[in-house]
Design a protein around this nucleic acid. Structure first.
Length: 291
DNA sequence: ACCTCGTCCTGGTTGC
DNA sequence: TGCAACCAGGACGAGG
């Protein structure tokens, strides 16, 4: 499940390999990859293009060509790139031969990943309708996040998974950000108070930056293009840690299901309801009796 | 307009 | 032991 930190790590590794190179030949062996377009047609269109820059927007990799066209790659669950072909790899779905003679292999066990070739004027509208602010960009402010959450009745976890709220957050980093912000995943998105939104804003950034610093998390299939693993999985505060103690308070991490996704949180640090007033100030009866 | 849920996919794990 | 059922989940479209 490559999310923003994993995709950014792939981008950084692949950029020096691809930038400036001409795609000599492209072979696509998975009929689903370019759906609904014929993969042979897309492969032929890609052949001869020269890579200008490798960029990222949310979880999308953007291969920008000198022609102005762009190949949008979404890795979905199990998509990955390898700088070296492995003989007889059953999950290799495409091979790109570069003009320096090297091959870049795209592999994807579950075949959810997609390649979409866009003309120069198609890129902007494609993202505009699908993605919110880039979380590590200047436009992602507490006010911007607040505006995206306003009046939404959905649980905050569901809102974070919606790419129009903030681009690039997936199931893992949503849980990690909510833990950092001390917010229960079922809190109503539009009901967060201003300081809570501010905390969430900072938490999203912190969680994603921690992931990038660790070169992503390696779970199941995700690998970097050179085959090495990220280490963020060892830093998870809640994700996948059901029953283990919370780093802050020692309470056992709980697992629930929100928006159809496994969701981990600390039941003590991340309360759904504010602590009852009786725990903070004397009850009516005790005040009366203390006279 | 917003929200929830089913769909797509395969491989690893669980349960009988 | 063998095999079926279940689980993982990002984006999208259908339906409420």
């Amino acid at each position: 499940m490559p999310e923003l930190p994993e995709v950014e790590t792939v981008r950084r590794r692949l950029a020096p390999v691809l930038e400036g190179r001409r795609l000599e030949r492209v072979e696509i062996s998975d009929g689903r990859l370019t759906r609904p377009l014929d993969p042979a047609v897309v492969a032929a269109e890609l052949s001869g293009e020269r890579v200008d820059r490798l960029e990222r927007r949310g979880k999308y990799l953007i291969v920008r060509f000198e022609s102005g066209r762009a190949l949008l790659v979404h890795l979905r669950m199990t998509g990955s790139f390898r700088q070296h072909a492995t003989e007889g790899d059953p999950h290799a779905r495409a091979v790109v031969r570069l003009d320096d003679g090297s091959d870049v292999v795209y592999r994807d066990v579950r075949r959810f990943g997609t390649w979409l070739l866009l003309e120069p004027d198609e890129l902007e509208p494609y993202f505009a309708s699908r993605l919110g602010e880039e979380p590590l960009g200047a436009a992602f402010t507490p006010a911007a996040l607040s505006a995206r959450l306003a009046k939404r009745k959905a649980p905050i976890k569901a809102a974070l998974l919606d790419q129009r709220t903030v681009a690039g957050v997936g199931n893992i980093y949503a849980d990690e950000a909510l833990w950092r912000a001390k917010l229960h995943p079922l809190r109503e998105a539009g009901g967060l108070r201003k300081p809570e939104v501010a905390a969430l804003h900072a938490a999203v950034i912190a969680a994603l930056e921690a992931g990038i610093e660790r070169q992503g998390a390696t779970l199941r299939d995700y690998r970097q293009p050179d085959g090495s693993s990220g280490s963020m999985q060892h830093e998870f505060k809640v994700y996948g840690r059901e029953g283990e103690p919370c780093d802050r308070c020692g309470t056992a991490i709980d697992k629930i299901r929100v928006a159809g996704r496994g969701t981990w949180y600390c039941p003590r640090c991340q309360r759904l309801y504010a602590a009852s007033s009786s725990s903070r100030r004397p009850s009516l009866s005790s005040r009366h009796s203390s006279v």
